[in-house]
Design a protein around this nucleic acid. Structure first.
Lengths: 238, 238
DNA sequence: ACCTGAACACCGTTCAAGT
DNA sequence: ACCTGAACACCGTTCAAGT
């Protein structure tokens, strides 16, 4: 359960074990084989050690996978240097960078949980908060709004990206959508009036665009409420 | 992998196995022991059968847990008869009913995935869509908006509700939040300028309210865009 | 302080056999 | 058609022993 923080004190041999090395190797295995495929035995072999050695640096498999997911989340910041001017476009860019990072490592999406405790999940909320703070919003709303946005980013990404047939990469995402659309068509219109009417939309519906559309809705909401709010209680009228 | 649809043909003994009975028992075990605690051996003993019998009705543990989660999602509709008039308040009520249902069965939240394929997940999207259709929104936007809202509902719920220490129910949610707040206080303000400034908000932050606040933001966004949209491209200005 | 690897206590899943 | 239960092929995790 101990962690090796920072570099090893002395030179040590090149392949010296550390939490970072282990997590990095775990990410590769996770990418290749999925969560089920990642095994302490396999990981140990990959790193030329025994399984026991891994437990010196990581408390258990849950922690290992969480750390791996947080490392993946970190990729988003590399891609997105954060120096946008405009708050709205900065938030959009950040959100999309996170979506894309998770999309490249589908197993990771469901392991980012809230409120954040690991380094990069914290960083995400912090950046979102910093951008929100540049807005015209009153300071008391910053936290709530920042949280809502960052939960949307990770939560909806996870929904969309979550590995389908838990292990079976033979079915492409498009096949999956097409098959789902076909199933929707067979539903009873009495039970599912909306879906049976709308199944066409699922076919030419791109996940990533859907993610962005929802995000824009959220940001529009922000925009709308940035102006002084109506008396609480009679929120939405339509 | 075969399923028993509907009731058994003849009377049969009271405890006759069926997919529904199995899934129901799985929900109880899941509630008590969490996902790790649910075991085919244990479930079989609970139902007075052998493990092999279970596999006649359910293809594997993944399917079993997915079905159990969908059953939990179904609770939300029982609590929410759907006959609201106003689209906005109907959506709010539906969303909160889903959140509360998942909150009572935390293991379920992360197993509702998108796009929906199981009965109650489909029902959720359908109801959301039906409510959205009552709005002033142009018909081409119904699908996208309905999807955004229902992904928000299940995705953000999952984020917030996801079982913390995967198995350890000894730590209450409040303890967890308090502990997290304390950890945020110790962060380096240089790395996390927003969070270290705002840690107080986490302490008195109620998950459920947070969920609703984000939802309202989304609905406000809807409201704002229900009016004719500005020329595409210059969406948010602030 | 860190690594080794055998051993323990499980699990999901399959399958030949029954009714 | 549906159920039984032993058996297979794993796993995560621990721990006494080493360096």
């Amino acid at each position: 359960m101990q962690r090796t923080r920072g570099r090893a004190p002395s030179g040590g041999r090149a392949g010296a074990l550390s939490q970072e090395v282990i997590v990095g190797a775990a990410v590769s295995l996770l990418d290749e084989l999925g969560e089920r495929g990642l095994t302490f035995r396999l990981l140990a072999k990959e790193l030329n050690t025994g399984t026991g050695a891994l437990y010196w640096h990581v408390s258990n498999k849950d922690e290992l996978v969480d750390l791996a997911a947080d490392q993946v989340l970190g990729h988003a910041f590399a891609a997105h240097p954060s120096l946008e001017e405009d708050a709205a476009s900065g938030l959009r860019a950040l959100a999309v960078a996170v979506f894309d990072a998770l999309d490249r490592h589908p197993w990771a999406a469901s392991h980012v949980s809230a409120p954040p405790t690991l380094a990069n999940a914290l960083r995400l909320l912090d950046r979102v908060g910093t951008l929100v703070a540049r807005t015209g919003l009153p300071a008391e709303r910053h936290f709530t709004v920042a949280t809502a946005i960052s939960y949307y980013i990770t939560g909806v990404s996870a929904q969309i990206i979550a590995p389908r047939p838990t292990h079976d990469a033979t079915v492409s995402r498009e096949d999956f959508l097409a098959r789902t659309a076909r199933r929707w068509e067979e539903l009873d219109p009495a039970d599912y009036p909306f879906l049976t009417r709308t199944t066409q939309h699922l076919r030419d519906h791109a996940d990533r665009d859907q993610f962005i559309a929802g995000l824009d809705l959220l940001l529009d909401g922000l925009n709308a409420t940035a102006a002084p709010r109506p008396p609480a209680g009679d929120s939405n009228a339509w």
